[in-house]
Write a protein that binds this DNA or RNA. Structure first.
Length: 417
RNA sequence: GUGGCCGUAGCUCAAUGGCAGAGCACUGGAUUGUGGCUCCAGUGGUUGUGGGUUCGAGUCCCAUCGGUCACCCCA
C-alpha cells in the first residue's frame, strides 16, 4: 500500500497473534482492580492544554516537548481552544474529581482507568507516541499505609501476569513545607558547579532543580555529592516516609532507595516509586511508576485533598511477559463446521452448537470438503463437524482422525467435549 | 529535537550498472464428500517517493518520507 496511508508514526496495530497477551494483562488488571476495590472511570482522551500545563508542570518534559496537540476546529471560540491528547491520566481524573464534586462521596475514593496515552516523542524500542496504561488512583487518603498498599498492588500485578519480581525504586521528594529548602540546597550545590552541567540542566536549575538529578549525563561524582531529599525532609514527611517503609517491610515488599528518583511530573510530593524488570534497570525500561500528589486537587481548583496513584505501561508489560516466556492459558477448543451440502445446514448446526456454549467456526464456503478440512486444521480446530444434505452429521477429531458418523444434530454437542 | 543503521512480493531475503527472482504464506489442481505429508500451477511489484548521473539504475549521487536503534526523557 501507499506509504502515505500507513499507520501514524509511533503507533502500532494490535494484530491477532499478539492480542492474547493483551487480553491476559488486561484481565489481570481488571481482576486486581476489583479485588482491591477500585471503581472504573473513563475520562476524555483529550483535555485543555492548560490542564496538563498546570497539573503536570510547565517544565515537565511531557508538557514542554511531548505535548500531542490537537488542532482545534473552526467555529466557536470554545472549539478553538488549545487541546492536547492526554499524556497521562491523573490530571484528567483529578479534574473529573473536582468537576463532579466527588469529595462528597464516601472516601477515600479509589478509581481505576485504562487506555491510550499520547506523547509526541521520537519512537524507539518500548516507546510509542500512543501507548497504553493501566492506572489506579486513591484520592482523599493521606497515607502512609495506602502508599505501601499501591506498591504491593503493582508488585502483585507483575507477579500475576508472569513477569515475576520487579525492582522497585523508592524515594520521597518532600512537600511544600520542606521542598523549598531542599530546592535551595540543590540550587546552591549545582549553581556552584554550573560548568559541569548540561545545557538542559542549567536551564532546569532555575525552573525545577530537582530534575537536574534525573539528567542521565550528570557527572556521577557530582551526583554522588548532591544534597539528598531524604536528608531534607521535614518531620511530617520523614514520619510519612518511615511509615511507608514500615508498611512495605510488614508486607514483605522489597524496594531500593533511589535518591535520584524525582519523577518527571511536577505534581508529585512525598512518595515516588518506579518499577523495573529485574536486571534491566536502565532508565528507559521503566514498567510503571507513580507517587503521591497531595497538592494537585487544590491546584486544579478543588479543596485541599491528598492523592496517590500509579500508571503501569501495558505495552512494556506485554513485552516483558513475552521476554519472560510467559505461557498463556489455552483458548477454549474450537469446533469447525464444514460440509459440501447446503451452506444453510452448516449454519443451523453451528447455531445449535453455539447454543451449547461451544466456540464454532462455520465454513459457509463452496470450497471442496478437502479444502475446508485443511483450513479447519490450519486454524487449530479441535474437531470438525461434517454436515451433508440430511439431518445427520459426522464428528471428526482432527488430532486423532477418529470419526463418529450418522449423528443427529441434537447429539453432536455431547461428542464435542 | 540530535545521531547511527536500514527501505526489493503479505513475511524472510536474492539479483557484477544489463530480462526483477526464490523460499514461506495465500488460492486452485493432482484427489466426484475427509485435513496435516508430497507434487504441480496460479495470484501477488510504480524496487518507499522525487530528482540527478548513464546508452541503460533495485544497484551510483542528492533530497525527502518511513522504519529501527541510541541520545534526551518517560510508560
Amino acid at each position: 500500500m501507499s506509504r502515505s496511508l500507513a499507520a501514524p508514526r509511533g503507533t502500532r496495530d494490535l494484530l491477532p497473534e499478539e492480542a492474547p497477551w493483551w487480553d491476559r494483562a488486561e484481565a489481570v488488571a481488571r481482576d486486581l482492580a476489583q479485588r482491591y476495590a477500585f471503581a472504573r472511570v473513563e475520562i476524555p482522551l483529550f483535555e485543555r492544554v492548560e490542564l496538563f500545563a498546570r497539573g503536570l508542570g510547565e517544565s515537565s518534559d511531557a508538557v514542554e516537548k511531548e505535548m500531542f496537540r490537537v488542532s482545534g476546529a473552526r467555529g466557536s471560540d470554545e472549539e478553538r481552544s488549545d487541546w492536547a491528547l492526554r499524556p497521562e491520566p491523573t490530571a484528567g481524573i483529578v479534574r473529573a474529581f473536582v468537576e463532579h464534586g466527588m469529595h462528597v462521596r464516601p472516601g477515600p475514593l479509589r478509581l481505576t482507568t485504562s487506555g491510550p496515552m499520547f506523547r509526541y516523542d521520537r519512537p524507539q524500542a518500548g516507546r510509542y507516541r500512543q501507548f497504553t496504561q493501566w492506572d489506579v488512583e486513591v484520592i482523599g487518603d493521606a497515607g502512609p499505609a495506602v502508599d505501601a498498599e499501591l506498591i504491593e498492588l503493582a508488585q502483585r500485578f507483575y507477579r500475576e501476569v508472569g513477569i515475576g519480581e520487579v525492582v522497585t525504586r523508592l524515594n520521597s521528594i518532600g512537600d511544600e513545607a520542606c521542598r523549598p529548602a531542599y530546592r535551595a540546597a540543590l540550587v546552591d550545590y549545582f549553581g556552584a558547579h554550573q560548568d559541569r552541567l548540561t545545557d538542559d540542566s542549567r536551564r532546569r536549575l532555575d525552573v525545577n532543580p530537582l530534575r537536574v538529578l534525573d539528567d542521565r549525563e550528570l557527572d556521577p561524582e557530582l551526583a554522588a555529592g548532591a544534597p539528598r531529599s531524604l536528608d531534607h525532609l521535614c518531620a511530617a514527611c520523614r514520619e510519612h516516609f518511615d511509615g511507608v517503609r514500615a508498611a512495605l517491610d510488614a508486607l514483605g515488599c522489597a524496594y531500593q532507595l533511589d535518591h535520584r528518583l524525582v519523577r518527571g511530573l511536577d505534581y508529585y510530593t512525598r512518595t515516588s516509586f518506579e518499577f523495573f524488570p529485574a536486571g534491566r534497570e536502565g532508565q528507559q525500561d521503566a514498567l510503571g511508576g507513580g507517587g503521591r500528589y497531595d497538592g494537585l486537587v487544590e491546584l486544579l481548583g478543588g479543596r485541599p485533598t491528598p492523592g496517590i496513584g500509579f500508571g503501569i505501561g501495558l505495552d512494556r508489560t506485554v513485552a516483558a511477559m513475552q521476554a519472560a516466556g510467559v505461557t498463556l492459558p489455552e483458548a477454549p477448543p474450537l469446533v469447525a463446521v464444514v460440509g459440501d451440502g447446503p451452506a444453510a445446514s452448516r449454519l443451523v448446526v453451528a447455531a445449535r452448537l453455539r447454543d451449547e456454549g461451544l466456540a464454532v467456526r462455520c465454513d459457509g464456503s463452496t470450497r471442496k470438503l478437502a479444502r475446508q478440512l485443511e483450513s479447519a486444521s490450519k486454524v487449530g480446530a479441535r474437531w470438525a463437524v461434517i454436515v451433508g444434505d440430511g439431518e445427520r452429521a459426522t464428528v471428526k477429531d482432527l488430532a486423532s482422525g477418529e470419526q463418529r458418523h450418522e449423528l443427529g444434530f441434537d447429539e453432536l454437542a455431547a461428542h464435542l467435549r
